[in-house]
Simulated scan of single mutants.
Amino acid sequence: MTDVTYTRATADTAAGLMDELCDVYADAYGHVPGEDSAVKTSAFRDRATGALGARNYEVVTARAGDELVGFVFGYSLRQERDWFAGLDPAPEPGFTDERGGQRTVVLAEIEVRQAWQGKGVGRRLHDEFLTGRGEERATLSANPAATTTHALYERWGWQRVGTVPGRPGAYYREYVKFVRPLR
């Protein structure tokens, strides 16, 4: 199997990778019966492009030769984002305080092409991204029906903290929130 190279980059570089990121995203999910893949990939492009302007945005890519086989990106959470709005069960006081955007990093997306899934690429992307961050903790959102993915996150040290309602136009009606300490 070809060696995989992992590279960390900023929003400027990621903007030039957007078509490749969308290709990986589409491949990672494949065709799901009853879903319009083009709509889902278009929604991803909108989210990914919007994230480029976030504070401390970074992407880590995985390449096998010239092929992008996976990526992860995220950014520092801002207080006004209301990431945990409506969290059920309600968190302890202070849980949602971001203290100047240096407390929490959002792991916004982690995607690996189907042919590379199960080969450690996702875990390495995850670890590379989180190891380079300076925040105290990380958070991510997950599809509520993706229980296999939830179990994987828990094996990787994430703790489920509850669910939040999806915002207007969101892909899911609710999302499961996870948190993981970084220091």
Rank of each mutant, 00 (worst) to 15 (best):
A62P: 06
R63N: 06
R63Q: 01
R63L: 00
A64P: 05
A64D: 08
G65Y: 03
D66F: 03
D66W: 03
D66R: 10
D66P: 12
E67F: 02
E67Q: 04
E67L: 06
L68Q: 08
V69D: 13
V69N: 04
G70C: 07
G70L: 07
F71L: 09
F71V: 06
F71I: 10
F73D: 12
F73V: 07
F73W: 09
F73Y: 14
G74K: 02
G74L: 03
Y75Q: 13
S76T: 05
L77F: 09
L77P: 10
R78K: 15
E80W: 14
R81M: 15
R81C: 02
R81D: 14
D82G: 06
D82V: 00
F84N: 14
A85L: 11
G86P: 03
L87N: 04
D88V: 15
P89F: 04
P89H: 08
A90G: 06
A90W: 02
A90P: 11
P91A: 08
P91K: 14
E92S: 14
P93L: 05
P93S: 13
P93I: 06
P93H: 12
G94F: 01
F95H: 06
F95I: 05
E98W: 06
R99D: 01
R99W: 00
G100S: 13
G100M: 10
G100Q: 06
G100E: 06
R103L: 09
R103D: 14
T104M: 10
V105C: 09
